[in-house]
Amino acid sequence: MSASIRNSVILTHWGLTDNEVRCDLSTDIRMYGCWGRNARLWKDNHLPCFVPGKDTVVASTAGDYDNSVAPFGYQVSLLVCILIYTLFLPRGKVTWDKQYTLFFAGGVRYDDVSYSHGVRQTLMMLFSQHPGFKLIDTGERGGYTQYMADFGRSTFCLAATGAGWGVRLKLALMHGCIPVIIADNVQMPFEDVLPYQDFAVHVREHALYRLPEVLDAILSTEGLVKRMQINVSCIWRYFTWRDPQARAIDALICSLRRKMTGGRLIPVMDWSTCNLHCDE
């Protein structure tokens, strides 16, 4: 990528903001988000992988697939969709009484200190046996067949950093689960225009040990979980591209419009209608 192209607005899935720290390490470069050519671009030209305020982190297209488990975003044939909608599970209906407080399943790699910046390893060591938490090391089990279903069975779902951008944030939202984001110095998709504080939980890496305390505080605040769940049932549309209700393109256009105003435009989400108002 030439420097002249890099001066354009880049649409990326990976909103890493601390490139100087994580792209210039002598350890496995791939685990720090710059991936191959971008890593060399940084080291050779001092060009970052993502520039906050200029570039836009967009929702992944991963997860826009046929999924008979997710209550939102069916991508099946029209006939099957009509049958599901009419006979079994109307769109937008989810079970809000959950079996687990927190769910995560994914690779942990205890022998690789660079992977996930130590987040997944720390979480597993601290909370793998914590009551109400279901944390699965898929590397140990060689896969996990209940992966999708357990998103829908959980109140909170971890969207913890791994080797780079991931799809768990999107999967949590599409299954009616409140995402718990643990990814320091990483901007989330459309974070510049969507009110993350209304539908997600951010936990800093240095505060991982306080995770149960953070979740308990939310659970004990009257009406807060229900309000966030209702917002989740609205906001998932802004993270998908293919569904008939998809609004990711609306979020993208809003982000670009905000950049054209130098950040002066402040978008407002109308939760009663699920509409993102993006006017000055």
Rank of each mutant, 00 (worst) to 15 (best):
F190S: 02
Q229M: 12
P212I: 05
H277K: 12
S114T: 12
I136D: 01
S8Q: 15
L208W: 05
A251Y: 08
L169S: 06
I84N: 09
C34K: 10
L79H: 03
D270K: 09
L11N: 07
R40A: 10
R40G: 01
M269N: 01
C49D: 04
H202Y: 15
C81H: 07
V9E: 01
C49E: 05
D243I: 00
W96A: 08
P212M: 09
M125I: 06
V225W: 03
D64G: 01
E140Y: 06
K98W: 00
A149W: 06
T240R: 03
T56G: 00
L78E: 07
R109F: 13
F50R: 04
W271V: 08
D192I: 13
L89C: 08
G152F: 06
M188L: 12
F199N: 09
W271T: 10
R6H: 15
A251E: 00
E280R: 12
Y74T: 04
L173D: 07
W42S: 12
P90T: 09
S116V: 05
G53P: 02
E280L: 15
G223N: 06
A251F: 04
G223D: 08
I178G: 08
G176V: 12
S255P: 08
L79V: 14
Y196I: 09
R257M: 13
I82S: 00
Q121I: 04
W271K: 10
R153M: 10
D28F: 06
L16F: 06
A183C: 08
T17W: 03
D150T: 07
P195L: 00
W165Y: 13
Y196C: 07
V69M: 02
W241M: 05
M269C: 07
Q129H: 13
F103R: 11
R210P: 01
G53W: 04
N231A: 13
V94R: 14
L224F: 01
L276Q: 07
P212C: 04
L47A: 06
Y238P: 07
W165F: 15
V201N: 03
T101Y: 03
C23Y: 05
P131I: 00
A160S: 15
D66I: 03
V58W: 03
L16Q: 13
L16R: 11
Y32A: 11
S154K: 02
H277T: 13
M260Y: 04
T240I: 11
A207H: 12
R40T: 12
